[in-house]
Design a protein around this nucleic acid. Sequence first.
DNA 1: GACTGTGAAAGGGTTCACAGCT
DNA 2: AGCTGTGAACCCTTTCACAGTC
Lengths: 228, 228
Amino acid sequence: MGSEVPRPCTMRVMLRARAIPQATVARLPLYLRALREAAGSATPTLSSEELAERAGVTAAQIRKDLSYLGSYGTRGIGYDIEYLTKQICRRLGLDEELRVAIVGAGNLGVALARYGGFSNRGFRVVAIFDSDPAKVGTTVADTKVSSTKDMSSLLSKRRVDIAVITTPAAAAQWVADVVVGAGVQSILNFAPTTVSVPEGVSIRHVDLGIELEILSFYRRRVDAAAAV
Amino acid sequence: MGSEVPRPCTMRVMLRARAIPQATVARLPLYLRALREAAGSATPTLSSEELAERAGVTAAQIRKDLSYLGSYGTRGIGYDIEYLTKQICRRLGLDEELRVAIVGAGNLGVALARYGGFSNRGFRVVAIFDSDPAKVGTTVADTKVSSTKDMSSLLSKRRVDIAVITTPAAAAQWVADVVVGAGVQSILNFAPTTVSVPEGVSIRHVDLGIELEILSFYRRRVDAAAAV
DNA sequence: GACTGTGAAAGGGTTCACAGCT
DNA sequence: AGCTGTGAACCCTTTCACAGTC
């Protein structure tokens, strides 16, 4: 995954609780996913070791990470699946529905709009935009595609929390500027280019080509290992 | 960024050159992208500061990272765009075409197959698989969709380097097992579940829901900042 | 006995600051 | 003068090991 989020100074904002390290924040959703998978299992509790196994990290890591949230486990027993799930959700701000807009109704944009993983995780796609007049007015996954000309007004009217950019690289910075101008403070960028945003706005980058290029590097190393 | 790649021990394999830190490897593709964007510019060279600006990192970081590759810059001048591009490509193993298979011809799989960013970056989609008989035989982006039953044989016959998993979560582990069994050593997993692979196989995870959940956390923090 | 929570130690990664080249 | 390359300092993250609790 590509990513950059908080300036160190943004973190210092947290006054009350222990600050949660970035690295931990990035893993909490992983634990959440593992907990949901485990929700149907026989026992209502889970040890750090079992959770670690499911999430693909070490048990010590789990315990350390969860300790930043508070003491939600029981010594000698483990963690209550349902309770821990609720606590992590709360800490991630997932206890209220988050409203998502997708900008760019190309293949990827449409794929994301139809992606089932959003709705059952508390996200709702409330707007889809495209600059192509032929696409404007069509319906994708129960949502009408709007013109990018109307972005500014519609973004605030529909109270969008997160904007997902799936336009070509050339349009990405412009889209980000408009979106930020409309008050959106969180952006997920799939366009293969660097996008800059003002202080206080969070942006994460996902570049499919980059993921493949990183794999390419380690492929070579593996070959070398085989050759030794 | 979702991801896990090399056990620490895998790194120790490198005998000849200075080992390149993981964090640096993950940034090299970023520099590559920035260099390509700068390729059309007036000057044939670029300072670490200019490159940093384009890639969204600090100049010191650029210099440190590039120093792991060798001394490819010129003091007082900067880096030659074309030469540096070539060197990074070589180090990432991108000087030969890499052959990609996509498993799962749903919305996301099709979007990826059609994604232009692959071909112009040296990747070639040579196979697409799906378990749905209705999809098998159809053509997506000039490639015939094959049955997942034929994966094992086709993966080796077509010399696939990297497998991309875009199936539902329930099928992901099975797909990974088959793919690894066929000799593929690099996997990019989009299924929202943890997949385990044997030592020596590289896997990276991209989970769209997780990216949104991470953004959700920092959204809260930003609100807190505004409130202070 | 089993398992969590956490200080302390170890390990990586980033930033600094400047020596060294052109 | 301008900019790279790099040891050293700093900071963040992970791992260890064990005290604390059920």
